[in-house]
């Protein structure tokens, strides 16, 4: 089985998000970038599905050379090879177009992504890739089993889940439950340096959106403390002041 795993390179989850003074750009100075946590789950499941010579895992990333350390991390975790489409990921459709253009004639049986990237997190790229490749897409899955040529997936819905059967090839976006993230071992880290990372030139694609500016939320006022033995007062405040009950 040939699996393609899409990965994004995102600010570490502890990052305090700030922007340039004109509010136009994310302030990346001093920020540590990581493999998007959901993509780690997709990658871990792909490795499990191909372990023991049952297939190969290729990771693909649309981004610049500054992402290479994160791509090497994916190789250290266990991907067989990597592809970087050499361009900033301008927007979701542009990114999906790059992945689809690369994957189109490579015969992948399965494409896995994270449920969303934790920076621009639109949860947009996966289903767009599905549409562009003309294959089924299932978003936000919590379980993935392959039975012959059928994927048996658990998809999250409001207040429950759905069991979905999909024929290969398809694309699915992974959430918690699909797999446990894998930590690279020493051998993985050593071999990651020599595994192939090919850099591919960008395909032309329309840009449909542009980010005008960013804002950070207005901070809340000071906290109002209520004594532990006076919970009735809290209930009163929630009713009369906050008006939420």
């Amino acid at each position: 089985m040939k699996i393609l795993v899409c990965m994004s390179n995102v600010p570490d989850t502890t990052t305090k998000i700030t922007f340039t003074s004109d509010h136009k750009q994310f302030n990346a100075a001093g920020v540590q970038f990581i493999l998007n946590p959901y993509d780690e789950l997709a990658l871990a499941r792909a490795i499990e599905l191909t372990e023991g010579g049952k297939g190969t895992v290729t990771v693909i990333h649309v981004g610049e050379a500054s992402s290479d350390p994160t791509i090497r991390k994916a190789l250290a975790i266990g991907a067989d090879d990597a592809v970087r489409i050499d361009s900033p990921a301008i927007d979701a459709f542009f990114t999906a177009s790059q992945v689809a253009a690369y994957a189109k004639d490579k015969g992948f049986d399965l494409v896995l992504t994270g449920r969303e990237s934790i920076d621009h997190n639109g949860a947009q790229v996966p289903a767009m890739i599905g549409e562009l490749l003309g294959i089924p897409s299932v978003s936000i899955i919590k379980k993935l089993v392959i039975d012959g040529t059928t994927g048996i997936l658990e998809r999250e819905i409001e207040g429950g889940k759905e069991i979905v059967h999909v024929p290969l090839p398809f694309i699915a976006s992974c959430a918690e439950g699909v797999a446990e993230p894998k930590i690279p071992n020493m051998r993985g880290i050593m071999s990651a340096r020599t595994k192939p990372l090919s850099v591919v030139t960008v395909t032309e694609a329309p840009v449909l959106t542009s980010i005008e500016k960013y804002e950070t939320p207005v901070p809340r006022g000071a906290v109002k403390m209520v004594a532990a033995d006076d919970v009735a007062k809290l209930v009163g405040l929630l009713h009369t002041e906050a008006k939420v009950i």
Partner: peptide, 23 residues
């Protein structure tokens, strides 16, 4: 922007050649 909306809107946007604002 529900679980299903996250699976549907991007597909539809790509089909229509439409830009998408999610969330």
């Amino acid at each position: 922007n529900s679980f299903s909306g996250k699976g549907l809107a991007p597909r539809l946007a790509a089909r229509l050649g439409a830009g998408l604002v999610a969330g």
